[in-house]
């Protein structure tokens, strides 16, 4: 059992037993060994289920949307990316900061569960795509920090490499690439459901009047759904990479999200989402001297 896990359990036990919080969100060991599932703990004696290992992928901030009815404070463990998710939800008035007790974990980087699937415990496993060039491994908002802050390593990622490869392609090749990806989509909406930037009370994809998105599962509707999703999370995506991990057919969604993040930074000079809970999102504000490259 690692040091962080030990500290997590002690902290959670203290918080629950003293009645400071009503619920603790963390992770517990799942099955098989390369999965760690979210854990919802409301009794002091259950805290020994909590773990932190290199497979604690779930961004727990999303669950806060389902827990609005909980009376009392909610404690949750966050990695760097997850903490930005909390800022996003505060920005959208979805949660109140006072209701949360945020326990930050400086994240050493997680491993790819898909890569681990065929391997034995202890084998060399590659880093998860989202962690390869993580810019904020340390939580940006917390009440308590477990452990020492970790340095930010400048590394290259598979996602960025894919974006660069796509940008060099001819338009027709790019179109073929994305058409192939989107034609595999099952429209299970896992990418939306797991996304902390997707917090509309009624999603545009679920609306029947007007029916923005048809029910048929074909390339056209899938393209419409994915482009709409990308535009809707533009400037709000916190790069937690959950959409890509949740996707059952492995569509490289982060290559879409990350591209828009790059563009927003390049065009408007906006900082990444989820750093400042007070600021408006890049598409929800403007500057008088924004570029006008299309004129």
């Amino acid at each position: 059992m690692n040091e962080i896990t030990q500290k997590m359990r002690e902290t959670a036990r203290g918080l629950l037993n003293s009645g400071q919080v009503a619920l603790v969100l963390g992770w517990e060991k799942g099955y098989p060994w390369y999965k760690s599932a979210p854990a919802f703990i409301d009794r002091g004696e259950d805290v020994d289920r909590l773990v932190f290992d290199e497979f604690c992928h779930n961004n727990l901030s999303k669950y806060l949307l389902d827990l609005v009815a909980v009376e009392g404070r909610i404690a949750l463990f966050v990695k760097g990316c997850d903490s930005r998710g909390i800022n996003r939800l505060i920005q959208d008035n979805q949660v109140k900061r006072e209701q949360l007790y945020i326990i930050g974990i400086p994240c050493p980087g997680l491993k790819d569960p898909d890569d681990a699937a065929g391997k034995k415990q202890g084998d060399e496993i590659k880093d998860a795509a989202k962690c390869q060039d993580c810019r904020y491994p340390n939580p940006v908002v917390y009440d308590l920090l477990l452990g020492e802050k970790v340095p930010v390593a400048k590394r290259s990622s598979e996602t960025q490499a894919l974006i660069e490869r796509l940008e060099k392609m001819k338009p027709d090749e790019r179109y073929e690439f994305w058409a192939e990806q989107f034609s595999r989509c099952l429209r299970c909406y896992a990418c939306r459901n797991i996304c902390p930037a997707c917090n509309c009370r009624e999603c545009v994809f679920d609306r029947a009047t007007p029916e923005w998105l048809g029910k048929a599962n074909n390339l056209i509707e899938n393209q419409f759904m994915h482009l709409t999703r990308a535009i809707h999370v533009a400037g709000r995506c916190i790069e937690c990479g959950e959409c890509e991990r949740a996707c059952p057919v492995n569509i490289p969604l982060m290559a879409l999200n990350r591209k828009l993040i790059n563009d927003i930074e390049e065009l408007f000079g906006e900082e990444p989402a989820g750093l400042d809970p007070e600021k408006k999102t890049p598409l929800g504000r403007f500057e008088l001297d924004d570029p006008e490259k299309f004129m």
Partner: peptide, 10 residues
């Protein structure tokens, strides 16, 4: 941004 996205889509 949309223009960039559409170009990226081919």
């Amino acid at each position: 941004l949309t223009k960039r996205l559409l170009e990226y889509m081919g």
